[in-house]
Write a protein that binds this DNA or RNA. Sequence first.
DNA 1: CTACTCAATGTAAGCGCTTACAAAATATCG
DNA 2: CGATATTTTGTAAGCGCTTACATTGAGTAG
Lengths: 333, 333
Amino acid sequence: MATIYQVSEAAGVSLATVSRVMNGNAKVSERTRKKVESAMASLGYQPNAIAQSLASNRTNSVGLLVSELHGSYFGDLMSTVENVLKRNGKHVIITAGHVDEKREHEAIEFLKSRRCDALILHAEAVSDDYLKKLVNSKVPVVVINRKVDELEQNCFVVDNVKGGYLATKAAIDAGHKNIAYISGPLFKKDASDRLAGHKKALEEAGLTFDSNSTFEGDFHESSGQEGMQHLQATFPDFTALVCANDEMASGAMTAAREAGFDIPSKLSIVGFDNVLFSRYLYPKLTTINNPIHAMGEMAAHWVLEHVYDIKSPVPIEHLFVPEVVDRDTLGTL
Amino acid sequence: MATIYQVSEAAGVSLATVSRVMNGNAKVSERTRKKVESAMASLGYQPNAIAQSLASNRTNSVGLLVSELHGSYFGDLMSTVENVLKRNGKHVIITAGHVDEKREHEAIEFLKSRRCDALILHAEAVSDDYLKKLVNSKVPVVVINRKVDELEQNCFVVDNVKGGYLATKAAIDAGHKNIAYISGPLFKKDASDRLAGHKKALEEAGLTFDSNSTFEGDFHESSGQEGMQHLQATFPDFTALVCANDEMASGAMTAAREAGFDIPSKLSIVGFDNVLFSRYLYPKLTTINNPIHAMGEMAAHWVLEHVYDIKSPVPIEHLFVPEVVDRDTLGTL
DNA sequence: CTACTCAATGTAAGCGCTTACAAAATATCG
DNA sequence: CGATATTTTGTAAGCGCTTACATTGAGTAG
C-alpha cells in the first residue's frame, strides 16, 4: 500500500505538497498538481484515513447509535442519515445499543473512541444525566426520538402525545366508543406519551378511561398477539384497538383473525409509526405517520451545519408532528 | 481528553507500561498495574482508537458492505454479523452500495481507506474481476450471496438453484400444473439461478416451460404487483405463483386480492427468503428459507478465524441449503 | 540593478499510540 | 554472597499523515 512518502518521491515534491493536492486547499501550481496526481494514479495511492484522522483530528465520520440493526424503523433511520451525510462527503459509523444501558453505553464509548466528529443517538436505555454529560463534553451530540430537559436544542422528537391523541381521535371520529389500547413499555417516554395522548382523546370525547382497556406490550409483534388475547378477557366488547406501534398492531391483527374477528368490520385497528411493512399488511394498516425520515434528515443536517459548517438547506426544526395515515383497518361504526 | 502520556505521568510510569496494561499482553507487576489503572480511572482515560490503529496497523474493525441499510434481508445480515463479531471484541463498519457499480466501488474503497482488518461484502454490482483483484490484494475478503469462480473459499452462498427448484416442486407436489413465476432481475446471478431451479422442477415433472408464464421483476414489492397483473394477461389459468423473493410475493398477494383471488383457495403463492415479515403477512407466506443468518454467522467466523486467529466454533461451510417453510399460502389442488 | 512582495514549495514538529530493544530490578542457585 | 537468569520497566523510533513556519524564486517597482 503506497504511502504519501512514495508519492512525493515519485512526483519529485515534498510530502506537504502531496498533502496539499490531496486536500485541495492550499495553492499548488497547475504543473506540480498534475505531476502529483499522475504519481498518485500510477501508484494506486489511497490515503490512509486513519493517519489523516490522527493528524488532522478530524475523522469525517459521524457515529450513529440505533437500538437494532434490523427492523423497519431503524432501517429507515440509518438509510436516511447515511444518505444525507454521504451526499456531503461524510461517513456514518453505525452501532447497536439493543435497548440495554450497558450496551448502549459501550456503543457510545466505542463511537467516541473512534473519534467520530459527532454522534447521532437513538438512545433508549441510557440515563438523561449521562446524555447531559455527553452533550457538555467536547463531542457534538444529537438525540433522536427522546426529549431531554435542558437539551432541547439537541433533540429531535415527534410529538408522541399528539400522535397517540390522533390515533384514538380517529377511532372516536369513526364512531367507536369502546376503544382498547396496547401500549409500549411504559418506562419509555414515547410509550407513555402515546398513552397520554390516547387518554386525552378519550377524555375530550367524554369517554372514561378504563384501566382494563389497556395492555402493556413491549413494542414487538408477539406482545400484540398477547395483548389482543388479554384484552378480550379484560375488556370485551371493544370495537377498536389502538396500538402503540405497527409491529404490535400486526400481531394483534393476527390474533384477531385467529379469534374470528374480521378487520375492520368487527374490529378496527390503528397502529403507530407507519413503518414500511404496514402497507403490506392485509388489510393495509391505518396508522400514525412517525416522520422518522424527516427527523433523520434533520439530525444529519444539524450535524453538517454545526460540525462541518455546511449550511442546512432547510430550517432546523426540533419537533415533528405526526399525522393519520388512513388505510383499511379503521371502519366506521 | 486525556492521553496516554498524562496517564503515564499520573501513574509515575512510562508510556510503554501504560500501553502494556491497556493491552493486557506483556507482564506488568500487579502493583504497577493497579497504579496505572487507578490513574486511568481518575483521568477518565479512553484510548484513542485512531492512534492505536495507526501504531498497531490493526483496527479491530471489519467492514461490511450491504446493498441497502433497510429491508429485512440486510437487517438480518447486519445484525447477525455484528453480533458475532462484537461478541469477540471486533467492530463492524457498515456501508451501503445501493446495487450500483460506482457506489459499491466507492463503499469498498472507503472501507479499505478506513483500514478495516477484513471485508464482508454483499456486493451485487461490482465485477467478478474487481472482486478477484480485491481478494488477491492484502485485505482479507469474504463475499456473501455470490459465487465467484476461483474464489470459492471466500464465498458464502445459498444454493439458489435448489431453492428455486424446491419452491416450484412444492407447488407441483401440491397438485399444481399451471405455475407462473415472477423472477428477480436476471442479470443477477441469484435471480437467474432461482429461475433455473424453477425450470428444472417443471421439467422433472414433465411440465413444459412457457415463456409467457414468467415475469421479470426487480425484487421489490411493486414489481410483484405488476407481475401479477401482467401474468393474468399473458398466462391466465395459473393456479400457483412462485416468486423469487418475499417482497414480490407480498406485492403479488396484494394484487391478487385486488383482482378477487382468494389465497390460497384460488391462487397459491410461494415466496423466497423467509424474511421476517413473511410471517406477518396474511395469509402467512409459504416460502423458501434463505439461511442468511447462518451465512452471516459463517462469514463472521471465517473472518475471526482467518484474521484474528479466533477458532470458529463450527466448521466453516460455504454452501448453504435452502428449505421449504410451509405456511398458509400454498393450497393443494 | 536592488529591494521588496507574494505565491509556491519545503522542513520538521507533532497527532497518540505500539513495540523492538536496552536497562534496571528482582529472583535463583551454587 | 556474587554471578546469572528472569522479570519488569523505560527509551526511542516509528505508523502516515497535517500544518505552522521557513525558504525559495519569480515578479514588480523604484
